[in-house]
Every structure is written in C-alpha cells, then in structure tokens.
Design a protein around this nucleic acid. Structure first.
Lengths: 223, 223
DNA sequence: ATTCTGTATGTTGTATACAATATTCTTTAA
DNA sequence: TTAAAGAATATTGTATACAACATACAGAAT
C-alpha cells in the first residue's frame, strides 16, 4: 500500500458552506440579533437555492444562534440577561471542571504549548490589537480544554462559548480589563503546572466571574 | 383585549412529527445503533415526502443520535466505550453542580414534590416494573434539575441524558442495583433538604459513578 | 482465480414547483 | 380619522424532479 492520501475529503456540502457563512456573519455581528433571515433573499445573495439555506438555518437553530417560529421564519437569536447569566453559570462550572481535569491529564507537550500561549497572549496585550488578543485568549483556553481529552466536554464548552462570543469580544475591547486578564491567565497556568486542582478550579471560576461582571455591565449598564 | 387563547399552537411542522417519531424509535431501541436511515424508505413508511425526513434526520444528527457521512447517508449513532465515559464524566460534573444549586434554590413547593417523587420511586421499585422505575427515576432527577432555574443547564443535561438513555434502561432492569439506587436517592434528598451542598454534590457524583460501573460492565463485560 | 472496467441501480444533494399560511396594503364603512 | 375587511403579496412548508455521486454486479482481460 503506497501512502498517497490523494485528498478526496475536500468536498463540503453546500449546506455546510452556507452554514459557516451565516455563522460567521452572526458571530462577527454582521447579522445583528433580531434580524430576520429570509430564505429566498439569502439564497439569492449567496447564489444557491433555498434548500441548502433552509438546512443551514435549521443547523444554526439547533446551535442556538437562531430562533425559529413555525411558519414565520427565523431570526438571529437575541440573548436575554437571564440567558446570558445562565450560559455563564454553566460555563463557570465546566471551565472549573476542565481546569481540574487539566491538572491531572495535561501532557508535558501541552504544558509547553500552554506556557507559550500564555506568553503570546501577553504579547498580544502589549500590542493592543483586540482581534489578536481575542485569538490568543481563545488559543490559551483551547489548550486547557483540549488537554482534558473529553470530546463531549470540549464540544459542550465550545457551544456555550459560541453563545456569548459576540459579547465577549466587546469585553476584550475594554483595555482596562486586560491587566487583570493577564494576571488571571498566569494564575491559572501556574496552578495547572503545579497540579493544584483546587487553585486551578478557583482561578477558572474567577476568570468567568470577571467576564460576567464586565459583560453584564456593558450590555445592561443599569442592572 | 379578550383573553381568548384560542389554542392556535397545535400546529406542528411535519419535520417535527417525523423527528419525534424517529427519536422515540432510536431511544427505545426500535432503530438499532448502526442501522441505516434511508430517506425514501422512511418517507414511504411514514407517508410523507423526503423533505421533512431529511430535516428530521439532520436534527437528530445535531442531537447526537445519528451520524452522517456526506453523500453516504445517515445511520443510528453508535456510542463507543470512550464516548460513553466522556458523556458520563460531563454528566457527573453537571449533576453534582445541579445538586449544589438545588440546595440553594429549591422552593418549599419543590421540596414537597421531591419528597413525593422519592417515595413514588421507592414504590415503583417495590412493584418492580422497569418502565415505571425508569419513569419515576427521571421524575425525581427532573425536579432537582429544574429547581436550578437555569434553562441552559437543564437542556445541556437533558441532551447528555438522551445520549445514554438506551443503556441506562438496561441498567435499571438489573434488579440487584435497585436497593442501592433507592439508598442513593434518599441520601441526595436528605442532603438537599438540609442544604448540605458538599454532601449533595458528593451524592450526585456517586450516583453517576455507580451508573457508569453498571452500564460499562453490561456493555463491555470484559473491559 | 483475480483484478479491472463498465454498466446498472440506488441514494443523496440541490433546484424548483406548488400549496398553505402570514403579512401588508388598500379600500370601505362608521 | 380610525377601524375593519378583503385582496394582493411575500414567505414558509412540503413535494417532486433532476443531477451528482456511490455502490453492486457482471463480464473481460490478465
């Protein structure tokens, strides 16, 4: 058997192309909460028929980025204050759990990656570009999450993260939060490297707590 | 404005009817893991066109009950030992979290319901009907989960529960496990009524631990 | 006998057509 | 002027048609 892999996996159904396109548009705020998603219009704009658009919208609904009313169509999901708090409450619990698992399961190679990611995050903060900071922040957390080796846990957390992606980005743009963010990353890194379950879990919880406070005060300044 | 609610909500899209039908068939084992789901056949059997069947299958895929290969169709999801362990690991963490939250948030009314559900579970065990036991077991846990008031947490846990429903039922049919199940329910109930967070969380974890051991030894007797 | 190739068949992916319902706008009556 | 009714329009829900691809089988060449 020769090892020609002959990349035959490059086929993507149109529904998935549309799905990724719409998903990105929602997460980046191009499509705003409450905005209606009409099949024909999107189909024409994307140059496909209604079918793949329908299927993409249904997928987005299951992911929680879109809400549908029967016979009335779909719109970009609007998250309520309660909804946001609920998401963050679950995330806090699961992130803390991830941090604890990471202490037990992280490999030496992943430890190096985590140190590197922590450093790169700090450099991104120095540079000050919000998009870069967000990317490096995600990368840092992804290493921790992936080190658990639990795929169900990974996909569950990623789904929760997706729900608040839009709002979290606003939070990262707030420069005054960044020193604290850096400090929290360092604490978390240190706790994991020292296999200190309790401290790692606590650090992860505090990290989300601060996110929650910031995000809520930005979206609901009076509450 | 008169308050005529004029039950106009009884419309259900065909895709949802098909979805619920297939879902039930999978959860009850009528459709077995690995079995192919072919659109035309299902459509003919259910007396609808391919479209709603397609959409239902996609929904099932997102719920994790069905796996799809592009251009090759769908089949009932098969869970691996690793997949089962992953699901149970997340459930353990979230169930424990629910139990702790329940201590803080359960209302007096829900406390009464929980006591009643615990009693009814014990009666079901006395009667010995597996289906009834399973129903009462779900009812007991649902009260705890719902008492958290966190809808995201509720739906996340319900999705995880769905993944292992088929296997859990086998576990409940094993009569030797039932006394322990009863004991665990009583411990959990007592801890919640006494607002003992630590004990409630621990009880929930042990409850899942035992499920895991039983289920795994039934499905993978050698492992 | 085995492998390759071509054909026939089956299945999914996408587009389109039609039906049922929502929405909007216009007209009419008070 | 406002409210109600009805027609016109827009949009979703479902069915079907057709194309692209996958699979299975038969026959030919080695």
């Amino acid at each position: 058997m020769t090892e020609l892999s002959l990349n035959m996996d490059e086929y993507l159904p149109l529904r998935d192309v549309v799905f990724h396109t719409l998903r990105r548009a929602i997460l980046t705020g191009q499509l705003k909460p409450g905005e209606r998603l009409m099949e024909i219009h999107l189909a024409q704009k994307l140059g496909v028929s209604r079918t793949p658009v329908r299927e993409a919208i249904h997928k987005l609904e299951l992911e929680g980025l879109v809400t549908m009313m029967p016979r009335r169509g779909a719109q970009v999901a609007q998250i309520s204050e309660k909804g946001l708090k609920d998401v963050l409450e679950v995330r806090r619990a699961l992130d803390a759990f991830c941090a604890e698992l990471a202490c037990e399961r992280i490999t030496p190679k992943e430890e190096e990656e985590l140190k590197k990611a922590c450093k790169e995050f700090e450099e991104a903060v120095k540079i000050g570009d919000p998009t870069l900071i967000a990317t490096k922040d995600v990368a840092f957390h992804d290493i921790i999450i992936n080190s658990t080796g639990n795929e169900r846990l990974i996909s569950t957390i990623n789904n929760l993260a997706e729900q608040i992606y839009r709002y979290r980005f606003e939070y990262i743009k707030d420069a005054s939060q960044r020193p604290r963010l850096m400090e929290e990353h360092r604490t978390l890194l240190d706790a994991i490297l020292n296999k200190d379950l309790a401290r790692a879990g606590k650090a992860a919880r505090i990290h989300i707590d601060n996110q929650e406070i910031s995000i809520l005060s930005q979206i609901y300044p009076e509450g």
